[in-house]
Design a protein around this nucleic acid. Structure first.
Length: 353
DNA sequence: TATGCGTGGAC
DNA sequence: TGTCCAAGCAT
């Protein structure tokens, strides 16, 4: 194992030539943009976040615009991005920062205290927006460091060791002079060269410095604890429309799975399949026997389970949404709902009328 | 420390 | 097709 970390200057020189052009790059002096991008990028690929970042910024250009918006508008803007607690916390964070005068804390501790800001995001905003000498430990940095020093201990147990190693870069004056660029250089290295599969070691600015490559084990690191299998659950949902092509939607409870998001009314999701008659007891209003089963099922994978959904459809002359529900134009409903619900709309659209 | 929490893309 | 993975956080 090499006694020291590789030189930061070599990575920064590579970054200056090869850095990716991304929507949130170019104005690192605006902490609102940096914070928004970091939250949006949590467990989300840059390719998926890019267009959504532009759209979000257009709708909520600054911290005050976001703080002034109703939470439902923020949830709707987030629809399709997943991990919806991020949107609720984003909104709560904006209100906290706006209430404190509109300026973000500049240090890791202050940032870490904000809703939805954990150790990673606090370090990323501190380094990129405020040039604080810290290294944000994300999956890219974990992978790069685990390979550089051939760390065999599996994640997540290895995280404290990897973090200590990563912070060691800040002893290098070259890294300390450009903390934000250094962090983003590590991200780009992990995203384009030191990738999870088939790393392009021949192109790496740190080739020759990497213990994993020297041993030929780079593709096997970092090791990870095995994941649990995903059970299959079943649900049934109801598409109730009126003569003007409005659809009845329901808002989910504020926390938990898809918390605060709109959905088609339906049964709970359970492991046992639903008989039609049993599911129909959960129908929102009583057109009774007029419900028709839409042929086929819709499927969707969540992090911890797979979901198979049946769909029932019915029409009424006019909707009278009960408490906790609302009517929306069917053509706009998909854009306001999480992807799992769009699968049901897709199923309905594919069925013969 | 372990678990719940979405989604889309790569292979 | 299925499997893995991604600029993680809250509890």
């Amino acid at each position: 194992m090499p006694p020291t970390l590789p030189p930061a200057a070599a990575l920064l020189a590579w970054y200056d030539r090869h850095r990716r052009t991304l929507p949130w790059r170019g104005d690192d002096s605006d902490p609102y943009r940096i914070w928004l991008s970091e939250v949006m990028l949590q467990q989300t690929t840059a390719a998926a976040a890019g267009p959504r970042f532009r759209r979000f910024l257009q709708r909520f250009p600054d911290i005050h615009a976001l703080a002034a918006a109703p939470e439902s508008a923020v949830m709707e803007e987030w629809a399709g991005l997943g991990y919806y607690a991020r949107a609720r916390n984003l909104h709560a964070c904006a209100r906290a920062v706006a209430a404190a005068g509109g300026a973000f804390p500049r240090d890791v501790e202050g940032l870490r205290a904000l809703p939805g800001v954990g150790a990673y995001t606090a370090a990323a905003v501190a380094a990129i927006a405020f040039d604080q000498p810290v290294v944000p430990l994300d999956a890219n940095v974990e992978r790069v460091v685990a390979r550089l020093r051939a760390v065999e201990e599996p994640l997540p147990g290895a995280r404290p060791r990897l973090d200590a190693l990563a912070q060691g870069f800040m002893a290098d004056p070259a890294a300390r002079a450009r903390p934000g660029d250094f962090a983003q250089a590590l991200f780009d290295l992990g995203a384009t060269i030191c990738t999870a599969r088939n790393p392009a070691c021949a192109l790496c600015p740190w080739r020759g410095e990497c213990e994993a490559q020297r041993r030929g084990v780079q593709a096997t690191l970092p090791r990870k604890a095995p994941k649990a299998a995903r059970p299959l659950r079943h649900g049934a949902h109801f598409l109730l429309t009126d003569g003007a092509r409005n659809v009845l939607l329901r808002r989910r409870p504020p926390s938990g799975l898809l918390g605060g998001m709109l959905e088609l009314p339906g049964t709970p999701w359970r492991e046992a399949p639903w008989e039609d008659a049993e599911a129909l007891a959960f129908a929102p209003v009583p057109p009774g026997p007029d419900w028709r089963r839409v042929p086929g099922v819709a499927r969707h994978g969540f992090t911890h389970f797979e979901l198979e959904m049946a769909l029932f459809a019915a029409e009424v002359p006019a909707l009278a949404p009960p408490e906790g529900t609302e009517a929306r134009p069917l053509a706009e409903a998909g854009a306001a709902m999480p992807t799992v619900m769009r699968r049901l709309l897709d199923l309905a659209a594919a069925a013969p009328a």
